[in-house]
Simulated scan of single mutants.
Amino acid sequence: MKKVGITGQNGFVGWHLYQTLKLYKEEFTLIDFERGFFEDDASLDEFVSQCDVIVHLAALNRHNDPEVIYEMNTGLVKKLVASLERTQSQAHVIISSSTQEERDNLYGKSKKEGRLMLSDWANRAGGRFTGMIIPNVYGPFGHPYYNSVVATFCHQVSHNETPKIEVDGQLKLIYVGELVEEIIKAIRNDDNTHELQISHTAEAKVSEILALLEHYKEVYQEKGEFPAINSAFEHKLFNTYRCYMDIANYFPRKFTQHTDNRGAFVEIARHGIAGQTSFSTTLPGITRGNHFHTRKIERFAVIKGKALIQLRKIGTNEVHNFYLDSDQPAYVDMPIWYTHNIKNIGEDTLYTIFWINEPYDAGDPDTWFEVV
């Protein structure tokens, strides 16, 4: 197994890379990194000496003073190079640089100089080095006002704030999960490309992205309907948007129940995409689930009985508890990267309808087991 360490493992890309590598337990061992290691040579050397692969993601993206960004980013690389030299490391080092390398700004300059410093180290030490030049990254759990305009707009739209377009530019984008797969591919292939251009997977104007997010708010967040999804980009953007909603205060959502002398009628879901609908009965005290998805869109609808639905974001300890009762039929949707379960907490059989946007495929299940 390769021992992999990630500087900036709790950052946007670092979190996704760390959690994805954890899924491949037979292939990778993770060496934990802490921010304070850069301030203590002994701790940094211990970290470096344990790693077969170091993915350097720690960086400052935004600051009021561009000089601070430049000094911070180049300084972190200098400290990493010094540690690599002190420990005589033969690790495969991967750095995330940016397509802003060629722009006339200190952030782009800091990323390019950092990549070249590590390239020089690899040439001197005979090490392997991958210098990834990456387009704009978007996806769940990015920090608004920091990581990307997509993160900022998702937060603002989902929280009823008013976004403002400063420049309606054409953005070349890559989804964070796609970038993670590129990094894992480089690790597996022992890549030694010192200037590796990572292609964007989508392209859209800022105004087009905002229009889609406002559509998701209207159709999904306000009406409870699944919107039509016309491309892989829209699928990923919709899943991104859902992760910025305040789920603790949004779910469970009560259905509109229509009753007459024949009984009651409830509409479970309106959706503009294909999917699979399933029905289950669950005996008292029994729990189903305890797994998560990284791409699937899923709804649990309680029709009869009493249920506890629990969600927990992977890598965190906070558990969201949602209590549902068929006296007021309701549903909870499962955000990606949240492990979830449903438990019958009543005395009678629990009836649940499940809707998911893709049929189960044993060859590519996107179902990862982890107890909530």
Rank of each mutant, 00 (worst) to 15 (best):
K3W: 03
K3I: 02
T7R: 00
F12D: 01
H16M: 03
Q19F: 10
Y24D: 06
E27P: 01
L30E: 01
I31C: 13
I31S: 04
D32A: 10
F33R: 00
S43E: 08
D45C: 09
V48I: 14
V48D: 05
Q50A: 15
C51Y: 05
C51W: 05
V55L: 06
L60P: 06
N61L: 14
N64G: 15
P66W: 04
Y70F: 14
Y70R: 04
M72L: 12
K78W: 07
K79F: 13
L80H: 06
A82P: 11
L84D: 12
Q88H: 15
S89V: 10
A91N: 15
A91G: 15
I94H: 03
S97N: 03
Q100D: 14
Q100N: 15
Y107R: 02
Y107E: 01
Y107V: 02
S110D: 00
K111H: 06
R115V: 00
R115T: 03
A125S: 13
G127Q: 05
F129T: 00
G131W: 00
G131I: 00
I133K: 08
I134T: 06
Y138D: 08
P140Q: 07
G142P: 06
Y145M: 04
A151I: 02
C154Q: 01
S158W: 10
I165T: 12
G169K: 14
Q170Y: 15
L171C: 15
L171S: 12
Y175H: 15
L179D: 09
E181P: 09
I184Y: 02
R188I: 08
R188H: 12
D190L: 08
D190P: 05
D190S: 13
N192E: 05
I198S: 07
A202K: 01
A204W: 05
I209R: 01
I209K: 00
L210T: 01
A211S: 14
K217T: 07
K217S: 12
E218S: 13
E218F: 12
V219T: 09
Y220V: 01
Q221R: 05
E222V: 14
K223E: 14
G224M: 05
G224Y: 10
P227I: 04
P227Q: 06
A228F: 15
F233E: 07
E234F: 04
Y241R: 00
Q257P: 06
D260E: 03
R262C: 07
G263K: 00
G263R: 00
A264M: 04
V266P: 02
A269F: 11
R270E: 14
F279T: 03
R288K: 15
G289K: 04
G289I: 11
T294E: 13
I303M: 13
L308I: 07
I309G: 00
I309A: 12
L311A: 12
N321W: 03
F322G: 02
D325N: 09
D325L: 08
S326P: 04
S326D: 11
V332C: 09
T339L: 11
L350N: 02
Y351H: 09
I353A: 14
I356L: 06
I356P: 09
E358Y: 05
P359A: 15
G363P: 07
W368G: 03
F369T: 03
V372I: 05
